[in-house]
């Protein structure tokens, strides 16, 4: 089981080694210690391996992840798992702004809080936040599911397209064109599945669902104030 100490090993060596792994590698479990808030740790992975990071990471940890599982025992900086395609990213602490930005697939689980713009422009990713999320989350969210066990900040889901936003706690305010929706059986099944996969201690019937009112899909002069 490889252990990489980022206190002594350059980041380039770690990422190059992870990129060199083939899909059927036997080195499937990596440990990274002393990340010291470095940026771009474990970005661009493309193999079904697990990378456990002990400590805090900076911007873009696990960016554009494919197939891999990345676990951060610490806090994550801006753009955690940005544009993730598949696989799983878990953070034991908090995540900074733009967590899961533009993600297209896979599962992002944040045990703590996520700050502003969580799930901005999400395109199919599933995000589960066990704490609360900050303002402008799910801005222009296109598809995928955002599940929040705590509260949501201001302007949730502003200019949202077809993503589903499940929130258990308070929503400070909804953004333009975002509204509460009736929960269908299908929604509930999706939510239950995500709660289970995330290991979240909550029941699907505790959540409200928010989605697009679809009034901004085609420009109309009477909606101009919303732009």
């Amino acid at each position: 089981m490889p252990v990489v100490d980022l206190g002594t090993t350059p980041l380039r060596e770690l990422n190059a080694a992870l990129h060199a792994l083939s899909k059927d590698t036997n080195e499937t479990h990596w440990h990274v210690i002393n990340p010291q808030g470095k940026h771009a740790v474990a970005v661009g992975l493309d193999a079904p391996v697990t990378v456990e990071i002990q400590g805090h990471v900076g911007y873009y940890c696990a960016g554009m992840n494919q197939h891999a599982t990345v676990i951060v025992s610490g806090n994550a900086g801006v753009g955690l798992a940005e544009n993730m395609m598949s696989g799983e990213v878990r953070v034991r602490g908090d995540a900074s702004q733009s967590a899961g930005a533009t993600g297209q697939g896979g599962l992002l689980v944040i045990d703590g809080n996520a700050s502003a713009r969580c799930g901005i422009s999400m395109k199919g990713i599933d995000i589960v936040v066990k704490g609360s999320i900050g303002p402008m989350s799910a801005f222009m969210a296109q598809t995928g599911n955002l599940v929040v066990l705590g509260d949501a900040g201001e302007a949730l889901g502003d200019s949202i397209y077809e993503a589903r936003l499940f929130v258990r706690g308070e929503v400070k305010s909804l953004g333009a064109d975002c509204e509460e929706k009736a929960v269908t059986d299908e929604d509930r099944a999706v939510l239950s599945g995500l709660l289970e996969r995330a290991g979240a201690d909550a029941r699907a019937d505790e959540f409200k669902l928010y989605g697009s009112a679809r009034t901004l899909y085609h420009f109309h002069v009477d909606n101009a104030g919303a732009y």
Binding site: L11, R12, N15, A16, H19, H39, A40, V43, G44, G58, Y59, Y60, G63, M64, V78, G79, E82, Q97, S98, A101, T102, R117, I120, S121, F139
Partner: peptide, 21 residues
Amino acid sequence: PDWTGPDDLEIKIEELRELTD
């Protein structure tokens, strides 16, 4: 969606370089 300004841009460029070796 995930960066604003030159200090963040520097970090974004680093990510893209790392991603593409």
